[in-house]
């Protein structure tokens, strides 16, 4: 789903590969310019402060591995997810993702509140890159999984936030991605639905070739990850075997 890989495909090439990856944000540009500031000549200054959210990041994810991304807030974990899913393009270096990527970044984005759940399945599926006939053929399964019952034909504005999240998860998880990117593990809906969604997630993870997980839940990461990438202020603090990295990270977090 991302652009054609910029790095030539080799045999047994890693599924995900980042080389010298760098992404910057313009601190000034977070506040967008206005017509007034352009007219007054203060809007287009070139001495704006640049913040590298990621810089010189190198790592590889091989077929069948699960990469955990750890680090304090503001380390660049979410920016990395945006880059891997093809939403942001690198300002420096390269990122290659070889396979169909799916992200469960934020649920419920892109719902049209005035349309029914069913209509929103069509729209959301199209955003995710499904063809109409693909969505149609999965429609009943998605509706059944969401457990929304008669609500599915009601406008989404009448849904509770839990119902919205359930619908969104049902759509996003009906994809069969080769590479799964999860930014903060989701817990959706009530207890029963949480169990169900966890099962579904495990199925998805079992089927995918590579997984990237961003989480602060250490036990969860210890259980699942084969490798870990430790980010700090946009730089790689460490990359290697999961247990080893997690031990080092926890040792640093622990009070002296």
């Amino acid at each position: 789903m991302s652009d054609a890989p910029k790095i030539a495909r080799e045999k047994n090439a890693p599924v995900i590969e980042a080389r010298g990856l760098g992404i910057w944000f313009n601190l000034q540009s977070r506040r967008r310019v206005s017509i007034k500031s352009i007219l007054l000549g203060s809007g287009l200054r070139s001495d704006q402060k640049v913040l590298w959210a990621l810089r010189d990041v190198n790592f590889e994810v091989a077929d069948g591995s699960v990469l955990g991304v750890i680090g304090p807030n503001g380390a660049g974990k979410s920016t990395l997810c945006l880059a891997l899913s093809g939403i942001l393009t690198p300002d420096e270096g390269d990122v290659a993702v070889r396979g169909k990527v799916s992200t469960l970044l934020s649920l419920g984005a892109g719902f049209n509140r005035d349309l029914s759940g069913r209509d929103n399945i069509l729209v959301n599926g199209a955003y995710l890159g499904m063809r109409r006939d693909e969505i149609q053929s999965r429609m009943e399964e998605i509706v059944a999984f969401s457990e929304l019952g008669d609500f599915i034909d009601q406008p989404v504005r009448f849904y509770s936030s839990g119902m919205r999240a359930r619908l969104s998860f049902s759509i996003a998880s009906s994809l069969e991605p080769e590479i799964l990117i999860l930014d903060e593990v989701l817990s959706v809906g009530d207890q029963a639905f949480q169990r169900k969604s966890r099962e579904r997630m495990q199925q998805m993870m079992a089927r995918s070739r590579a997984i990237v997980l961003v989480s602060h839940a250490m036990p969860f990461l210890r259980e699942l990850c084969t490798h870990c990438l430790w980010l700090e202020r946009g730089h790689v603090r460490g990359f290697g075997e999961a247990q080893e990295m997690l031990d080092a990270y926890e040792a640093e977090l622990a009070p002296e």
């Binding site: 991302s2 393009t89 005035d114 349309l115 069509l122 729209v123 890159g129 406008p155």
Partner: peptide, 29 residues
């Protein structure tokens, strides 16, 4: 995914669904 002409054409289903959704929501409101 860049908005090149080819990518937009490849996602013509998205264009159709979005246009229909826009029209439908406006006529329902």
């Amino acid at each position: 995914m860049n908005s090149t002409f080819a990518n937009v054409v490849a996602r013509r289903d998205l264009l159709r669904e979005l246009t229909l959704a826009d029209l439908r929501s406006q006529s329902q409101v």
